[in-house]
Design a binder for these strands. Structure first.
Length: 599
DNA sequence: GTAGGGTTAG
């Protein structure tokens, strides 16, 4: 939890960072010179896909066909561009011409399946490799481990890793990196760290030599930092450097970002200076992280200072820099400053990103200035930009919030003409908007027409309509839809249950509310605090304090923490009912001040 | 010619 003191320190640190002239002077000398120890990570050259495909098609038509191995280069090029569908299409074309890939080609296909969440087919390709009399190697297994991680089959990935070691294969830094990165990305940072220690300390046997590199460490570092395990991250950073692997701008950036997001500005600042002392230039990403962190703390002035500072240092801000600061201003309600920045960006003469417009439009929308928001929308059109679906979504929300259903309808009807297709979020906005603007009929109509057209509606869409139906007192229709959810292959969310319970309560059907609650309880579904709150609110409003207390007791028994909404119910209960205050004290969780968060 | 590829917004 970020404390206010921390936030204040953060602001001071950042101010110091941008305002202290001596430091600035020092920084400028350091940063003007090229990094002394730079071993920059060089991105692979941009692949000319058109060229690769042309080459491929030419080979495909050549008679007699060229050696099979010559197909691998274009296949690899398209695979590297992550165009998995295209790669598979290419293999199909080859099959159509009776061309069967060689060992390398089969690995390209296998990896392609693994990357596109079809690890099963990856294993099938390995089957073919074996059938053809080849042996899988560590490359084969590395791809499969990645595929398993992508599909969240972490246990399988780990057991495959151990199995291949037992079979005498030697995982290398790429295999470890794949496994550790896959574990981190699938939310298993703790396991990733354990595996790392296991590999590092040699427990995996087989005489493995642990020779990690910067990329390997960065994967794990990022995982730890994102998970908020900063102590572990710092330790790992030290371990890495202790092995003679010097951090670069990315490694520093990863840790700095983690510290920022954890509110540790002193630590972040320290690292930032340490990095510059080493002659490693912060790049636009580093600055963007700092600007974001400052904005999040509400320190937009310091963030602006940071922007000026980076420009002074000759680092070009990108659209993320601008969007971040713009959003910071909007968040604070400083729409004039936002507009000023926006104009400044526009005057730079570079092509604006539509996302930049979207940020400002959303700012105006949030602060109920629909006129400015719409004016910006017209700017997008007149400046020959293309609005995105996000632009429309923001404006639709604004128009519905303003109760301007006519304009919302009109805008929606114009989307297609702008070449923008609605997405599920758009439909949800419409359904919710119609319901909340006394146009339940229109919401139902839209819902039905979407269903009829075979559009896969999501739970959120159903929730919108369910809420609309309940609030309009159409309980029977709501129940009908609720019962239809399984047919639509949708599972009710906690919010769905709350809507239904609330609907019953509001219409005086407390018994039905309770029954649904019991169904949820008995189905083994973990009720969340919101579901309890809804039912308790219903009892409270119906002057049934005994049942409220009963539910509070139930919550306590399963250590479900009350929230601020629970608190309002309790306050309400105490204000209108005498004799319950003593009883409430007996409820363990509620009387334990360390566990109750009622802020 | 096949495997990991790392930091930033919404």
């Amino acid at each position: 939890m970020v404390s206010t003191t921390r936030a204040r320190e953060a602001a001071c640190a950042a101010t110091a960072l941008v305002s202290a002239n001596s430091q600035k002077a020092k920084l400028s000398t350091i940063m003007a010179s090229p990094p002394p120890n730079s071993t920059p990570f060089t991105k692979p050259p941009k692949i000319d896909l058109t060229q690769a495909l042309k080459e491929f098609n030419k080979m495909l038509q050549t008679q007699p066909p060229p050696p099979i191995s010559s197909f691998n280069a274009p296949l690899a090029a398209v695979a590297r561009a992550k165009k998995h569908q295209d790669v598979i299409f290419m293999f199909n074309q080859m099959a159509g011409a009776d061309l069967f890939p060689d060992y390398i080609g089969m690995h390209i296909l296998l990896n392609c399946y693994c990357d596109s969440r079809r690890v099963g087919l990856g294993f099938a390709v390995m089957g073919v490799i074996l059938k053809k009399g080849y042996n899988p190697n560590i490359v084969t297994f590395t791809s499969l481990i990645k595929g398993l991680c992508i599909e969240d089959r972490v246990g399988d990935a780990l057991s495959l890793f151990r199995k291949i070691i037992a079979m005498g294969f030697y995982p290398n830094v790429k295999t470890w990196g794949t496994l550790v990165n896959g574990l981190c990305r699938s939310g298993n940072v703790g396991i990733a760290l354990r595996v790392h220690r296991e590999i590092r300390d040699g427990d995996v046997g087989c005489g493995l030599r642990f020779n990690p590199n910067l990329i390997y460490y960065c994967c794990l570092l990022d995982g730890l930092a994102k998970e908020g395990l900063l102590e572990e991250a710092k330790e790992l950073f030290a371990e890495m450097e202790g092995r003679g692997i010097s951090a670069d701008v990315v490694a520093f950036g990863t840790l700095i970002d983690g510290l920022c997001k954890n509110g540790d500005w002193e630590g972040a600042k320290g690292l930032f200076f340490q990095m510059m002392d080493r002659g490693i230039r912060p790049n636009v990403v580093t600055f963007n992280m700092l600007i974001y962190a400052l904005c999040r703390e509400g320190k937009t002035d310091e963030a602006r200072g940071m922007l000026d500072f980076m420009v002074e240092r000759g680092e070009e801000p990108d659209f993320i820099t601008y969007n971040t600061l713009l959003d910071g201003y909007c968040h604070e309600g400083r729409l004039d400053d936002a507009r000023g920045l926006f104009v400044m960006i526009r005057n730079k003469g570079k092509r604006m990103e539509v996302t930049t417009y979207n940020v400002l439009i959303n700012g105006y929308r949030k602060h109920h200035n629909l006129e400015e928001a719409m004016a910006l929308f017209r700017d997008i059109l007149s400046e020959d930009h293309k609005p995105t679906v996000v632009t429309f979504n923001i404006l639709l929300i604004g128009l519905f919030q303003a109760g301007n259903i006519v304009a919302a309808r009109d805008l929606y009807s114009k989307m297609e003409g702008h070449g923008v297709a609605p997405v599920s979020a758009t439909y949800n906005i419409l359904l919710d908007g119609f319901c909340k603007n006394d146009s339940l009929g229109e919401a139902i109509e839209l819902f039905q027409s979407l269903e009829k057209s075979g559009y896969k509606l999501n739970s959120h869409a159903c929730n919108c309509l369910l809420d609309g139906l309940c609030k309009a007192g159409k309980l029977d229709e709501a129940c009908e839809l609720f019962e239809r959810l399984p047919n639509m292959r949708l599972a009710p969310t906690p919010y769905t249950y709350s809507i239904m319970i609330n609907g019953f309560c509001k219409n005086g059907q407390l018994e039905k509310a309770k029954n649904l609650f019991l169904v949820i309880e008995n189905s083994g579904y973990a009720s969340d605090v919101a579901i309890f709150n809804t039912l308790m609110r219903g009892y409270c409003n119906n002057n049934d304090p005994a049942n409220v207390v009963d539910l509070l007791q139930k919550m306590a028994n399963r250590t479900l923490l009350p929230d601020s909404y629970t608190a309002t119910i309790v306050v309400d209960l105490l204000s209108k009912t005498e004799g319950y205050s003593e009883f409430l004290k007996l409820i363990p969780n509620f009387s334990d001040k360390d566990r109750v968060k009622m802020t």
